[in-house]
Write a protein that binds this DNA or RNA. Structure first.
Length: 967
DNA sequence: GAGTTTGAAACT
DNA sequence: CAGTTTCAAACTC
């Protein structure tokens, strides 16, 4: 796809116009081609496009300058352009996808036309240095002029690059995902910078941001006024690029970008820029300018090596592109630039905490989400305090930059950032390994941070939520200051969550929570007050709140909320006002203690914080679904099973019943009468499945039901928890249970993040079918809501499926099956796998979500399989996606649909008789890319070990379960 | 609201 | 691993 587009765009053009260009005429063309090729395979096209743009920008810019004025002054603008070049990618981001390429291409074309390509770059780099000084003098005006010129030029190219736009769109997304690093720190600045850069560099057409011109100018002017060097500007531009990407993605998907940008621009511009500038030396800046886009791409380099994550990949791609380009002219410079970029990244990371205070859309949230998916270990989270960026980078690198990440990026950063600012503490939330907390800097009150993250998640999950997010952003933007921001953010997030949940019945609870939280946050030490409150009063509150039961909280008296007895602690969330606990240590103030305790518990039982409800792995395979075997009994089951003796699994004493799931083989209950499904029935159904279509699954995954559970868990630990909520909603009408699950586990708990899949699955269960249509709908809505964020989990699932399909069975299977012991590992593995394997697919998927990307088609197929498998018979996930999923998700869903709707034969989807077959069938043109990704996956150091461990764990568990069943 | 029941979690 | 104790939620009155 990309290549053709490129070929089109490159087609000749008059040098004077510079709009059209001979892309390939110059060596740059070769690079570009290579880049595109890579991009196509990896779905990293956006990055490549960015790099290309940078190159083009530099060259054309220099040309333009040379032509325009003898004065080096022009160079300065070039420098700015170089910066802009850096920005140019953002421009692409800013204008979602579309025109960015065109401009860069045009710029590149111009350069190529000049025939100087590399030379120009070198010249530009020199010019950049000059320009740095000049810019301070008042280059701004020049830049504007240049921008105008560029606009003219770019416009033409843009027109030519209709296809390119599509590419760009994807790249943007990818960039966003990749940019996660810088995003945090840069987002704030990036908005303004991007706007400015866009104004200068990008054509007005490309830029979709309404205020960009004004804002960007303001920013530039402000920077100049402030006396900051061009470096700052460049840095800003870089950051802007990232931020713009993110913003663009968001905006494209949901229009949040505008608000978000506004917010960011309002809050952050100068401070973050200044910070960045401080870190960067002028030389570095110059270098960066010289490389412009390259630098942007290079940002990740540090992570690239170690990380195999998508970002790393994208970065690598960018790096590759850059490298050749630089090699053309300045290898040394390129290396330096890369260094500079890496430095910037680090610096940004450092700066990020501060920036976070500004409440830019949070990469933090994204990180949190990602972390939830990736399951960053607590140890990782520990380091949060000082270096959020590092953690992020690592987590990100480990984690795959999936669509989920993109979605995460979409999530407002305000929360995390603010929290970080206000609270120096490391992300406290990380209570659950599974949970997002780890990655996020939860400086804020633990509960609040958790709530925010959750809220963000929820908001992100649903399109409606997106709206709420936007609203929240607006609100945040409205509140300028950090402290207030935090509170507001929390409230907003809560509100958003509540909104999303409202459909789910938990609204009331959320509202109360929100209000309480608001008060608490506003008041400052509400927690203390709350703690001080008598348990009775608390209980009253709880009872009031718990009318819907969504808001229930713990009432621990002796455990100090540091044991699994405490629902809050078990859910990985901090205790909050609703809790009536006494002597509670499950609070942000005692984060260290909480983390330690968690570690201890996890050391004993790695799955202690894993979701208890698991979707049987057997559902995963499509064949089963097609057969319809699995549809009947609710697939979701309690991971460990209950041990009821007197309640007959008909009361909430029974965890299975409480989770609205049927009992399974794993249960040791006596006289089971579980309404959702008796243990006996479950065994029967399992046998049926195994006999009929289960063979496939059995061959690879598991023949035994328990194993299925384990596998599902292992594969997607997150899946487990989520499932329950849906069930709750559907069947009993146990709003309480539902609300509880939703409020706690689904929303607040990190587990919930992953739940999407389970939710989707849950509908299948007969119970759900039995449940009222209303309930079902609500469950779907819930699923939808969460699904958005859970896109991550979704992606994970997809990845897993892809892995099954693509990778040689043994390894992948091992990965997928990965022992339950380390869910976090699994998650990380999955995420990684996703990233790597999916770069193509996932990215595409993400791109698809955000914008249709050329790559998407391929991934969907795999995803479809995965989804199908996940969805099982009902395809609840599918439905969910269709219903309320954001466009992005819808896109993915769309991709998925064909698979489901269509016969297994569906276009590219091969009938999934066996996982192997699926894997083989799934690949299409993208396949190569996927394979590539897969290869990359193994390279991830953490993955393999994790996988191995998982595999062993799973097996052990399976054995245990089997033993139990035998017993 | 107090007390009882229940089963998971923790401990030995 | 099994048995016991502890704990907090669920439930009953």
């Amino acid at each position: 796809m990309d290549s053709p587009k490129l070929s089109e765009s490159p087609v000749p053009s008059s040098s004077a116009s510079a709009s059209t260009t001979t892309y390939f005429s110059s060596p740059i063309q070769l690079f570009s081609e290579l880049i595109f090729f890579k991009i196509q395979h990896f779905a990293i096209a956006p990055l490549l496009s960015l790099s290309l743009q940078i190159l083009a920008v530099n060259s054309p810019f220099s040309n333009y300058i040379s032509s325009l004025s003898p004065i080096k002054h022009d160079k300065a603008p070039h420098v700015t352009r170089g910066l802009l070049g850096l920005n140019s990618p953002p421009l692409v981001f800013t204008s979602p996808r579309i025109n960015t390429l065109g401009r860069p291409l045009s710029s590149s074309v111009e350069a190529s036309q000049n025939g100087e390509g590399d030379k120009q770059r070198t010249n530009e780099s020199c010019n950049l240095e000059r320009s740095v000084t000049e810019l301070q003098e008042g280059l701004v005006i020049d830049i504007k002029k240049e921008d105008d010129n560029w606009d003219n030029v770019s416009v033409q190219p843009s027109s030519s690059s209709g296809c390119v736009d599509e590419y760009l769109a994807d790249p943007v997304e990818v960039d966003c995902a990749n940019s996660a690093y810088a995003v945090n720190s840069n987002l704030k600045q990036s908005n303004n910078v991007l706007q400015s850069s866009v104004n200068g560099l990008v054509d007005s057409e490309n830029i979709k941001i309404g205020n960009k011109n004004n804002v960007g100018k303001k920013v530039d002017a402000a920077q100049l006024l402030s006396g900051q060097s061009e470096e700052n500007i460049e840095r800003k531009l870089i950051s802007e690029d990232k931020s713009l990407k993110i913003v663009n993605e968001q905006g494209a998907s949901q229009g949040l970008s505008d608000e978000f940008q506004k917010f960011e621009s309002d809050t952050f511009d100068l401070s973050s820029k200044e910070r960045e500038c401080k870190n960067l030396g002028p030389q570095k800046v110059v270098e960066d300018h010289g490389n412009g886009c390259n630098g942007f791409l290079h940002q990740p380099p540090g992570s690239q090596q170690g990380v195999q994550s998508f970002e790393g990949f994208a970065e690598n791609v960018g790096g590759d592109v850059d490298v050749p380009v630089h090699c053309m002219t300045h290898d040394l410079e390129a290396s330096e630039l890369q260094r500079g970029m890496s430095r910037r990244c680090l610096q940004f990371g450092e700066a990020q905490p501060e920036a976070r205070a500004n409440c830019s859309i949070s990469t933090n949230l994204a990180n949190n989400i990602i972390s939830t998916t990736s399951l960053v270990t607590t140890s990782e989270t520990e380091g949060l305090g000082s270096s959020h960026l590092d953690l992020r980078v690592t987590s990100r690198t480990r984690q795959l930059v999936n669509l989920s990440q993109l979605a995460i990026n979409m999530i407002p950063q305000c929360y995390g950032e603010k929290s970080s600012l206000t609270v120096p503490k490391p992300s406290g939330i990380g209570l659950h390994l599974n949970s997002i907390v780890n990655a996020i800097p939860m400086a804020q009150g633990g509960s609040a941070s958790l709530d925010l993250a959750q809220a963000i998640k929820s908001t992100c999950q649903s399109t409606e939520n997106m709206d709420s997010c936007s609203d929240a952003f607006e609100k945040v933007s409205a509140s300028p200051q950090d402290g207030t921001h935090e509170v507001k953010v929390c409230t907003i997030a809560d509100s958003a969550i509540s909104e999303s949940l409202s459909a789910m019945e938990s609204i009331e609870c959320n509202m109360t929570l929100n209000t309480k939280r608001k008060f608490s946050s506003e008041d400052g030490d509400s927690d203390e007050v709350f703690d001080q409150q008598s348990p009775k009063t608390k209980r009253k509150k709880l009872s009031n709140n718990t009318d819907g039961e969504g808001c229930k909280r713990c009432n621990c008296k002796k455990t100090k909320c540091l044991k699994l007895y405490c629902d809050c602690f078990a859910a990985g969330i901090y205790c909050a006002e609703p809790c009536s606990c006494q002597g509670c240590f499950n609070r942000p103030e005692y984060e260290d203690r909480v983390l330690e305790t968690r570690k201890q518990i996890e050391s004993r039982n790695p799955l202690a914080f894993a979701p208890k409800i698991v979707q049987p792995f057997t559902e995963f395979p499509l064949s089963i679904r097609e057969d319809g075997m699995r549809k009947t009994p609710s697939s979701a089951r309690h991971k460990r099973g209950c041990n009821c003796k007197r309640s007959m699994c008909l009361k909430k004493y029974c965890e299975c019943y409480q989770a609205n799931v049927g009992c399974s083989i794993g249960c040791r209950c006596e006289g089971c009468k579980n309404v959702y499904g008796k243990k006996e029935d479950y065994c029967v159904t399992e046998e049926m499945v195994n006999r009929s279509g289960g063979e496939r699954l059995e061959s690879r995954v598991t023949a035994k039901p328990k194993k299925d559970f384990l596998h599902s868990e292992l594969c997607d630990p997150h899946h487990l928890t989520p499932m329950t909520p849906s069930f709750n909603c559907s069947d009993h009408g146990n709003k309480a249970s539902i609300s509880r699950l939703l409020s706690r586990r689904c929303l607040p708990s990190p587990e919930s993040d992953l739940t999407i899949l389970s939710y989707a699955k849950s509908p299948r269960s007969p119970r759900t079918s039995d449940s009222n249509g209303m309930l079902l709908e609500t469950s779907k809505e819930k699923m939808d809501i969460e699904s958005y964020c859970e896109g991550i989990s979704y992606n994970n699932a997809v990845v897993l499926a892809d892995e099954f399909h693509h990778t040689p069975l043994p390894n992948q299977l091992s990965i997928v099956i990965g022992s339950s012991s380390s869910k976090a590992r699994e998650l990380t593995n999955h995420s990684r796998l996703q990233v790597d394997p999916r770069r193509g697919s996932l990215i595409s998927g993400s791109s698809l979500l955000w914008h249709s990307s050329p790559i998407t088609p391929m991934p969907p197929l795999d995803e479809n399989k995965n989804l199908q498998g996940l969805d099982s018979a009902d395809g609840g996930l599918y439905d969910i996606l269709e219903d309320d999923m954001p466009d992005i998700l819808k896109d993915t869903s769309m991709a998925i649909k064909p698979v489901k709707a269509g016969s297994p034969n569906g276009k590219r989807v091969s009938p999934p008789h066996n996982l192997h077959q699926l894997g083989s069938s799934s690949s299409g043109p993208l396949r190569s890319g996927r394979k590539f990704i897969l290869k990359a996956v193994p390279s991830f150091p953490p993955l393999t070990p994790c996988i191995d461990s998982k595999g062993s764990n799973t097996h052990s568990r399976n054995g245990l379960q089997e033993n139990r069943s035998n017993d």
